[in-house]
Write a protein that binds this DNA or RNA. Structure first.
Lengths: 171, 171
DNA sequence: CTTGCTGCAAAAGTTTTGCACACGT
DNA sequence: ACGTGTGCAAAACTTTTGCAGCAAG
């Protein structure tokens, strides 16, 4: 059990892989001639604490809450590095701002987004890996990551009488 | 008048469906108490001329090129209306800006994006419809649209010797 | 008249960048 | 000293909004 794809470090027990990612990050930074600074460590920690998709701004806010002073610029710069290290990847759910998700060693989650309430549900869709492999092969690409987002109307919004869908009972 | 089942345009011959969409748009506007103005018509035209994914800015630029003066604000406002009419939908390929694609009556294209060169390849993946239906059913959602984007390294970028990401050849 | 539309410019929001200073080697 | 990092503030960019004047029913 706990076996995971290529790079997955089999950590002790229930904690998924907290230490290893730190090492992964450090290694990635070193390879690029960069340093593993306290700020970067703290940001990585904050990222690891996120179980779902998150925004840069939320990270900043939460870190401030818990007394970890980091500047916005550093957050953004570090998120980039985390992407280089393939620890996180961007999920683009709306046009307003980028969201991120932890994806190291596992395949990206799919996201189901309610167009009315913006509720986000994560789901797994393992078949996407095969699909992406096939498509990439067809075009000679080397796959890096992928995103699958479904937009729909959530049950809550569906049963809501007539909030603001824009649909008037005209016809 | 050009009957149109939800998914099948079946226009005369090779032209996909240029007239109908205009009608669709007009109807959608009317239903919302809005008007089909010359500006909106021109923007729709510009949109219809796009065979691939496009950005708001590109639309603005091209319209200016061809002598159609429209303001940026109007472009954005109209793109929204076109989305309401389900004629186009947003594709979010990167965090910088929204892209749009014509999707009326057909399922959204998938996109394969080269992380090095930003080349974009469109592809069909019909199986996604079934998948989205299944996921939506599982969560009680009513599907509206979906997006599938694969990121990878294109063949060109792969064979490029050393123009690596942030790796300079040590000046 | 009332409602909606456009263009302009300003505003808003997210992300990036320039700069000055700090740290580790 | 050097290269890299950080914070701050300003800049850059895309997208939205307020407003004045216009067009149409």
């Amino acid at each position: 059990m706990l076996r995971m794809t290529p790079q997955t470090p089999a950590t002790s027990s229930d904690e998924p892989f907290v230490l290893p990612l730190c090492a992964i990050f450090r290694r990635s930074l070193k390879r690029a001639g960069l340093k593993f600074t306290p700020e970067r460590a703290k940001i990585l920690d904050a990222v690891l604490s996120k179980k779902n998709v998150f925004e840069a701004e939320a990270l900043l806010y939460e870190m401030r809450q818990s007394g970890h002073q980091v500047s916005k610029a550093t957050i953004y710069r570090t998120l980039k590095h985390l992407m280089d290290a393939k620890i996180i990847s961007e999920v683009l759910l709306d046009a307003k701002q980028a969201h991120y998700q932890l994806t190291y060693g596992k395949e990206p989650k799919g996201h189901l987004v309610c167009v009315e309430t913006n509720r986000i549900v994560e789901f797994d869709a393992p078949e996407l890996m095969a699909l992406r492999k096939r498509i990439c092969k067809e075009h000679g690409f080397d796959p890096v990551t992928h995103r699958f987002v479904i937009y729909g109307v959530s049950p809550e919004a569906l049963q809501t009488p007539e909030a603001e869908v824009g649909e008037e009972p005209h016809e």
